[in-house]
Design a protein around this nucleic acid. Structure first.
Lengths: 264, 264
DNA sequence: GTGCATTTGTCCGTATGTATG
DNA sequence: ACATACATACGGACAAATGCA
């Protein structure tokens, strides 16, 4: 009817967006109900819903079921530092991220181990021939009872078969130490970060609302001879994580420049 | 009526997802029309639309206007290596031109410079007092005519005022070299990566369809004394980029001991 | 635990506007 | 100008999840 410039649902969208930005609707607050918004803006409930879905897909509000309705999303990321795996010293440049550092939250994890035929992504990174099996450790981490991240590690079975790497539950001295004792100490890693949206199965595993962006971090660890030993695939929901790297000129200058093309 | 476990639109979703995964629908192909899918699955067009919107928000298909309809999205990411900034190989080229040369694609860019009061994110990372202005260089990079990424750099105005850093257009020897000549050589950097969804203004600047996930990469560069000099904020759409880091034990072990932070 | 009220999720049918070839 | 296909919008209906009495 209006033949106007902008769509009706955008009015609703803009109204709610503004109220959220100005903290008139604070994180954790309930979003007004669909019927209420429909009446306020003189539009149908379906129109309100498209506006709400946009906000949901931008990560500003949660989907709401049952009595409680939708809520404004909270954003409290944990800091994830891939480099801490190799680090022996406290980070040097930490002024800002210290603020975001873990505030002593309650963390638990589940670990599942087994043997599978790797998919193409893992197989290529480990440079395995078709049909060679890998051992896996699939971990899901929980903070305050909600899943926070998953990380699945894969190592050729011939390396870890019968070792402590394949034992369920946490390994006190760390699985990387186990690999080192087996003669495959990890000394360098290539990390690939893919920002994307989760797929249905991942939504379920991480108990994410649809539309939550995340990062897939594929880390390929190499031993001293440069052979790939372990692939770890982390799924890090964007509303729960910030990934932090440090880099410095000196480290780059002293780095060997030989394996540049190995990524492809 | 359905009395079934899963929603009807999920059937449509699963069907299309499978056909895309198995390349029965190849990248660039047209997705079957909404009416056609509705008839095939014996559902209404609205139900088909919710399935298609999910696929769209997951980045698997494009939104389609006009005669052509929806198409299966192509996925050809560029490799973005923040660490190449500190590499010595090509001394003059900046991150993006090197990246584009590597891939052999046609790249252009627009650069805009100016002076602003920084927002909180930039101000805190540069440790500036309230009201201190910064110079900025805002770049939008295009590949094959479409925007590919943006990166906005900020440096305290007192450092770059009157220097070549504030000159529009590319600087032949690189802006980091200019900073070095001004006595602020960047030797280390803290990179924070936030997976998130773009906001309205960013959608416009990057010409993105809504729901495209992306990464915000905030890189804070420090000089030899550990003082923050430059903040660069990159927006990297997830369907066009993969971010790559390399790390190794040796670099972490040989790191300089600048300050003794309260060890964890 | 039951049942009720509320709110969102799903689904339908229909209609009109708009972008594209 | 026209056909096609998507975008927007309405109204109605029932199911499912949740909080609370």
């Amino acid at each position: 009817m209006p033949a106007d410039s902008r769509a009706r649902w955008e009015w609703v969208y803009d109204d709610l967006k503004r109220r959220i930005d100005q903290h008139e609707l604070a994180p954790g607050d309930q979003v007004p109900g669909e019927l209420q918004l429909a009446e306020q803006h003189k539009v149908s409930r379906q129109t309100v819903r498209t506006a709400l879905q946009r906000l949901q897909h931008e990560g500003l509000i949660n989907e709401g079921k049952g009595r409680l309705g939708r809520t404004v999303r909270e954003w409290r990321p944990l800091v994830y530092r891939p480099q801490s795996e190799f680090r022996r010293k406290p980070p040097t440049v930490d002024i800002y991220t210290q603020l975001l550092q873990d505030e002593g939250r309650d963390g638990t994890q589940t670990i599942e181990v087994g043997v599978v035929l790797p998919d193409e992504a893992v197989r290529q990174r480990l440079q395995l021939s078709q049909g060679e099996p890998v051992g896996y450790r699939r971990r899901t981490s929980y903070v305050d009872g909600v899943p926070f991240a998953t990380d699945d590690s894969y190592v050729p079975l011939r390396i870890v078969e019968g070792s402590e790497w394949m034992v369920p539950g946490s390994v006190e001295r760390g699985t990387n130490q186990v690999l080192a004792e087996l003669g495959y100490e990890l000394v360098e890693s290539l990390d690939e970060i893919y920002p994307r949206l989760p797929q249905a199965a991942e939504l379920e595993r991480l108990a994410l609302p649809p539309g939550t962006p995340m990062a897939e971090l594929i880390s390929t660890g190499h031993d001293r001879e440069g052979r790939p030993v372990q692939v770890t695939i982390c799924l890090l929901p964007g509303d729960r994580h910030v990934i932090v790297y440090e880099r410095n000129r000196r480290a780059e200058e002293t780095e060997p420049e030989t394996k540049e093309a190995a990524a492809e």
